[in-house]
Design a protein around this nucleic acid. Sequence first.
DNA 1: GCCGTCTTTTTGAACGTTCAAATGACGGTT
DNA 2: AACCGTCATTTGAACGTTCAAAAAGACGGC
Lengths: 334, 334
Amino acid sequence: MTKAPTIDDVARIAGVSRQTVSNVVNTPDIVREATRLRVEAAIAELGYRPHAAARRLRTRRSSTIGIHLDPYAGGIAGVVLDRFVHALTESAGERDMRVLLYAARTAEEEIDRLADLLEGGEVDAVVITGTFHGDPRTGWLNARGLPFVSFGRPWGEDDVEAPAHLWVDVDGAAGTRAATVHALERATGRVAFLGWPEGSGTGDERERGWSESVGAARGPRWVVEDSVALARDAVEAGLRVDADVTAIVCASDSLAIGAHLATALTGRPDIRVIGFDNTPAAEALGLSSVEQLPERVASGALDLLMGENGTVVAPRPATAGAAHVLVEPRLIVR
Amino acid sequence: MTKAPTIDDVARIAGVSRQTVSNVVNTPDIVREATRLRVEAAIAELGYRPHAAARRLRTRRSSTIGIHLDPYAGGIAGVVLDRFVHALTESAGERDMRVLLYAARTAEEEIDRLADLLEGGEVDAVVITGTFHGDPRTGWLNARGLPFVSFGRPWGEDDVEAPAHLWVDVDGAAGTRAATVHALERATGRVAFLGWPEGSGTGDERERGWSESVGAARGPRWVVEDSVALARDAVEAGLRVDADVTAIVCASDSLAIGAHLATALTGRPDIRVIGFDNTPAAEALGLSSVEQLPERVASGALDLLMGENGTVVAPRPATAGAAHVLVEPRLIVR
DNA sequence: GCCGTCTTTTTGAACGTTCAAATGACGGTT
DNA sequence: AACCGTCATTTGAACGTTCAAAAAGACGGC
């Protein structure tokens, strides 16, 4: 490996100027066919690849999107984000974009990273995840006019008429609604809900889907933190009180696995348990679960940042209507 | 957001030259304290951040490491890789490195991506994963002298005296050995092994750990593809023949979950099932499992690429001894 | 006051690309 | 034959940084 060939080397071999080579690479259609073929031959002969940094410097574009990776928390929750990262990488690749990961433990640290990456031109835009009530990141990004989209809606802020920022999310209520409807079709008794303590936007949404569609078959509503063991205990206790429950809609797969264990332990394998997130664990146990369709979420995020078919980051102002994508999840029946 | 300040703006404000500002940023100790403070004040005042692309162009370093993301296959297997990516991102951050993802469906496509990324200077090195017998990637990379490390040893090739390339891996045999020893301590009957068909290096290693340590308590050796349902059926059938088995060491968590289901179904909850990979699914079911310690794998990969405490990619030639890191996994008992 | 040495700072060039504007080639019209 | 318009190609400059070498300062010894 001596020295990588530059655009000038190609130009010399092909007997044209730098710029013509550049045109062949970037806008082939404005170059005469004969010339183009000659240049392409030279490129192939030398194995020329444009130097990314030089291009970035000149165009002031990195063609890269940053995404934050939370510290690995263990458990099941991380799987959804990982699938999203996968999907984002693939969708981005189709648009000639790259995905850069960054880690940060706290919101402050993350803001520092964001500043480095965005202001240093390392990335053109970022995807932030796990937004929460009063999240400092969105305000900071907005104040500087930096392009970003969040996976997760801006909880608590005005999110319909004048959206605070671009966002993409999964319609949690639609997911549990589908689960509930499915349960009602099959089940003969009441349909319970196993969810998280009130206050998490996501959890409240998921409960709402059940609540609004369960109707007369409404069973009890059990609440625990997101843990298999807690869920198991809660359901075991709950079933002693409400023995006529024949289906349990859950806010997560962790809860669903706990519920599943409880039904097995108490000799009630007839009870249908439906989870949320369609994690490998639910799949392994043969539990039905609501699939978030991360591929759709990912391409929705890119659509927002780059336009439907755009190839560069050019965020529209967050105007009503075009400022978010809400993906309808799908129930996977097992 | 008008225009980002450049190094010249800082220099003007601080009343020094470009280069002095550059020195304050990169090598503060060679600059006189009084000057340094003045420059730092100017940097803070303007909110200056060096432009990544310009720096990359000049230094010919991207401070970025690329890593391939397989198409999401579903199931449990992906979790280990995702944890590794997490860990790599965090370790890399500590060394002022970034992690860039790329997707590719086939080995050929991947080689194309690698060429773009490495020869275009987009990344300084790559981590390749899922190496297999006769993998075309390693040869291609070696032929060009491009820096890389693989997660997974070079199966089949000379991997001790004259290592084919830098690699980091988990000692699978040590993992199943620990699992077997643990089983022998607790179990009264024989210890079985549930593994994959012969031929996958990883699977053979894991079987070896059991085989070499199980001794007189050696139980049957069952073989299936990596699927929960297949594992369940195999173990159910196997236990009818070998009823004195009281522990099953498995080559993966998928297999372990299948085995676990089989023991539950056949009324043998006393049988200890031990998995491999310590995935969330195993955790959720309370199964013991061998933990791969992805953090160690990640920092091992960086050590190989950058030296123990290095801050730039400067791969040593793959000389015996210093060319690989073999991480000893740890049994998580539940 | 001068010299040598060491430390600190400045200067000019270079990294490889694309942008914006200029030049050249060619055919058709007047 | 001069002019115009269109298309294809070239030219000079610029993007913001760091390298290498040169210049300027500081300091002590004689």
